Amino acid sequence: MSSFYGAEELWHLTHGMQRLVLAESARDTQRLQEVEDELVIARRKIDSIDHQLYAHDLQLRRGRNVRVVPLLYGGSARTRQRGSGP
């Protein structure tokens, strides 16, 4: 094997390498777009979960201010809300 390359061989080598680099670059660009799309979907899911957690937290906080007490026999919720009875 010769250690020297002719002009035509060098042209073919460099042209082939350029095509390879361009093909890899196009694949990288496509994969980068796919990852960015997945990131947008993940952010939407996280936002939805955050909203659900916030709503649940509000519900729990409201629940702290409510005391559940057993009603006397024959009592109604209305009498309990007014604070009558033991």
Rank of each mutant, 00 (worst) to 15 (best):
M1V: 00
M1Q: 00
M1N: 00
S2T: 05
S2W: 01
F4Y: 00
F4Q: 00
Y5L: 11
G6E: 04
E9M: 03
L10Y: 04
L10G: 03
L10S: 08
H12K: 00
L13N: 08
L13C: 06
T14P: 01
T14E: 04
H15V: 03
G16W: 02
G16K: 02
M17R: 13
Q18V: 07
Q18A: 08
Q18D: 10
Q18P: 01
R19E: 13
L20R: 04
L20H: 06
V21M: 05
E24H: 05
S25Q: 13
S25M: 11
S25V: 07
A26I: 05
A26S: 12
A26K: 11
T29M: 13
R31P: 02
R31D: 12
L32P: 00
L32T: 15
L32S: 15
L32N: 15
Q33L: 15
E34G: 09
V35R: 12
E38A: 15
E38I: 07
L39D: 13
L39C: 14
V40L: 15
V40T: 15
I41Y: 08
I41T: 13
I41F: 09
I41P: 01
R43H: 13
R44E: 12
I46D: 11
D47C: 06
D47I: 03
S48H: 13
S48M: 13
D50T: 04
D50C: 04
H51G: 10
Q52F: 02
Q52N: 06
Q52P: 01
L53C: 11
Y54R: 08
Y54N: 10
A55M: 06
A55Q: 07
H56K: 06
L58H: 05
Q59N: 05
R61H: 14
R62H: 13
R62I: 12
R62S: 14
G63S: 10
G63E: 12
N65D: 15
V66M: 05
R67K: 14
V68N: 06
V69C: 08
V69G: 02
P70M: 04
P70F: 03
P70E: 11
L71I: 05
L71D: 03
L71N: 07
L72A: 12
Y73A: 13
Y73M: 11
G74A: 03
G74C: 02
G75S: 09
G75H: 06
T79L: 11
T79V: 12
Q81L: 11
R82I: 11
G85F: 01
P86W: 00
